[in-house]
Design a protein around this nucleic acid. Structure first.
Ligand SMILES: [Mn+2]
Ligand SMILES: [Mn+2]
Ligand SMILES: [Zn+2]
Ligand SMILES: [Zn+2]
Lengths: 143, 143
DNA sequence: TTTGAAATTAGGAATTACTCCTATATATTA
DNA sequence: TAATATATAGGAGTAATTCCTAATTTCAAA
């Protein structure tokens, strides 16, 4: 998929980030993946185009992106962080066998009210439903 | 808080786990904490009672507990795993400034339907709502 | 265009959070 | 009590991430 470079450069400008080939490549790679990849996965792929990009740059860049809200770090149970370029409000199902993370959309979930005692006390910036279980593929493999 | 040792020993028996002082101490420590502590935090506290308990034992034990469903690993963004002894269905608010995790209860959230296209494809074993934002204390500190 | 300050990078070292290994110790059963 | 299976301590090893610093690159101003 072609990304909107103009828009991306605007975002970088807005946050006073310089436009570097590494940043663009990392963003492209993440946007074109559907599997909520880890930094290492992105790094392996980027290396084919920029053989001496460093893993630190990939990590640093993904973290920067998440700070400016361009990508998200997916909620998980530790282990390698996994990233999500999909900014549409959506929710996740995570398979506890294979670790795959599936997006899903739900108006019902999106429109959930925040309990009023929380709304009074805290500033809420994100609301997501996390489902867990066993995916169809893993169910087919085992029992 | 006094824990129900009888019940705990039953759980261990049911899963063919031997009843060891370390396991009991680790469980007690976790049950008496409200802050979803990391293994390291538990370890530091246990050491005061058993000075040569090993960090590996704490990690291994907490992992065992989570495998048998006695505790949960809290969803987060990587970094140290954090554990939860509260088995009542509940949800979390996590402060993005200080990392504190607050429990809350909501009948509305508990009774959410699973979208039918997911119910058909996957086996769902857990459903939780994760809220994020800034807690009252952090809001007071800064702006 | 050229130039220079400031930001960014590569590459390696350091750190953090586990996870593995194995000899010893302990819990449980007979 | 003795045998056996498990669990533990302590240290080594590993994976993921973060830090450090000299060199490079970006970008704005001249
Ligand atoms: Mn997603
Ligand atoms: Mn909790
Ligand atoms: Zn699966
Ligand atoms: Zn806070």
């Amino acid at each position: 998929m072609e990304i909107d470079l103009k828009y991306l450069e605007e975002v970088f400008h807005k946050h006073n980030l310089k436009i570097t080939p590494q940043r663009i490549a990392i963003y492209k790679e993440l946007v074109n993946s559907k599997e909520h990849p880890s930094a290492m996965i992105i790094y392996e792929r980027i290396k084919k185009i920029y053989p001496n990009v460093s893993l630190d740059t990939v990590n640093r860049t993904l973290l920067t992106f998440s700070e400016i809200g361009l990508v998200r770090i997916v909620e998980g149970r530790g282990d390698p962080k996994r990233f999500d370029p999909n900014l549409r409000q959506h929710h996740h199902f995570r398979c506890i066998k294979c670790g795959e993370i599936y997006d899903f959309y739900s108006e019902e979930y999106d429109s959930l009210d925040i309990p009023s005692e929380l709304k009074k006390k805290f500033i809420i910036t994100s609301k997501r439903v996390n489902l867990e279980g066993i995916c169809d593929r893993c169910r087919a493999k085992r029992g």
